[in-house]
Computed example of a mutant assay.
Amino acid sequence: MAEARELVRDRGPIPPTRQFEWTVVALCTWLMAGAYLDSWAHRHLAGLETFFTPWHAVLYSGMFAILAFLAITALRNRDRGYSLPQVLPAGYSLSLLGCVLFGIGGVIDMAWHLRFGIEVSLAALISPPHLLLMLALGLIVTGPLRAAWRRQLTRAPFTAVVSASLLLSMFTFFNQFDQPLVNTLASTKAVAPDTIRYLQQLGILGIMVQTALLTGVVLYLLSRFTLPFGSITLLAGLNGALLGSLEQHFDLIPIAIVGGLLADLVMVWLRPGPDRVVALRFASFIGPVAVSSLYLGFLQVTRGIGWPITLWLGSIIVSGAIGVLLSYLSVHPPIPRVDIA
């Protein structure tokens, strides 16, 4: 029981090698790409009425590859005399537990499909087995981020940045039904008035949620590290590539990359961080505003925007406001001391 608690605490003393961490990052990317590939198949291929598909094979083979790699590493370190809670570097024991949980979730998912059939659309994203898989996926892909967090580092390694991007992609996978890079609702025009109001609300909500997710992950990283130039480009670009592929909006993927680059330039300009709070607040506003403006501007040029100017301009300002509000969760104002007489 004590060993199990130590395993969950995930404080192994073995320092991870560069090769080990990049291998985990590559395998986690394989796993996440498999999840998005499976979603693409459900969107574009009719008649997927079985659990046993090539797309599920890519997804679950990625999970088993991570499980095998971590398990082999753990067994080797066990043979070297390390106790069970110490067989993996700090941050990676929870990834191993996530693999086990993912396997359990996969069995439950298969039974669920056999009993209730294959879910479609929104039901496929929020079915109970898939939510269990989401939890497991989050534990798996955040191993490199946890590992970097626990080391005496001030600058985020790119393994942690990719890990954070995969965490972001896990969240966006489960709200892909209202993602600006998946559904370009701002360009919708010729529909009934009641429908257009609904689509406008959904489209603005999508921009708000994506702003909160992307900005939240960046601020989380900034609360612990300084970020090397290119970090947000990599983070937003990888996430954008996965999202843009779902409905084959490949022209929007460069927009995600350029948006990340703009945010990186804002970081270089302002150097935000916990010790530069005003710069952090300002960057939290400017970054989302720049990204939202770029996205909506590109839609206007390529597809045309069906929203009145009040809506699309207001959504840009709201995205900046969301960034500022999130910055207060990342670095809160100082708490005044209470003098007790």
Rank of each mutant, 00 (worst) to 15 (best):
L325E: 00
S127K: 07
A46Q: 02
V100I: 15
L59Q: 07
S223K: 11
L227G: 15
L59N: 02
G12P: 03
W312H: 11
L213R: 00
L84D: 09
S330G: 06
P274E: 15
R9G: 07
V191F: 06
L132Q: 08
L313C: 10
I72K: 04
Y220T: 15
P15E: 06
Q200R: 10
I108D: 01
G106S: 08
Q248A: 03
Y295G: 04
M170F: 05
Q210F: 15
E3K: 04
G103Y: 09
L96S: 05
P288Q: 07
F173V: 03
V318C: 12
T188Q: 10
P144V: 07
A192Q: 11
S315W: 10
V278K: 14
L166I: 12
A74N: 05
L213C: 00
V107Q: 01
S327V: 14
V218L: 06
Q300F: 14
Q19R: 13
L7I: 15
P15R: 03
A90R: 05
D79F: 11
G230D: 10
S169A: 13
I66P: 00
Q300M: 15
A290P: 02
R276F: 13
P144G: 01
G230C: 09
R281S: 08
G306C: 11
A160D: 13
F51G: 06
L243S: 01
R18L: 08
A123I: 01
H44N: 02
L7G: 06
E3M: 07
A68R: 07
Q200C: 00
L70G: 09
A35F: 08
F102Q: 00
Y36V: 09
D38W: 05
F102D: 00
A321T: 09
E6P: 05
T188Y: 09
S284Y: 11
S245C: 02
I204L: 15
F174W: 06
L167H: 05
A147S: 15
T302H: 15
L88Y: 09
L132G: 10
P193H: 12
F173Q: 05
T184F: 03
G273M: 10
Q210C: 07
A148V: 15
Y82N: 12
T184R: 04
L261G: 12
L96G: 06
R76M: 10
V161D: 14
A290N: 06
P180D: 04
L133G: 05
G138N: 08
A136I: 11
V141G: 06
V120W: 04
M267R: 07
F282H: 03
P336G: 01
S231V: 13
G81K: 08
L242Y: 04
T184V: 15
L214Y: 11
S315E: 14
L88E: 11
I204R: 10
G98N: 00
P333K: 04
L265Y: 09
L219W: 14
A186N: 08
L242M: 14
A68D: 12
A241G: 07
L213N: 04
G287I: 05
L135T: 12
T159K: 03
L238F: 15
P228C: 13
T211Y: 08
A241C: 08
L238W: 12
V182H: 02
R11F: 12
F116D: 10
M1W: 12
Y36G: 01
G244E: 00
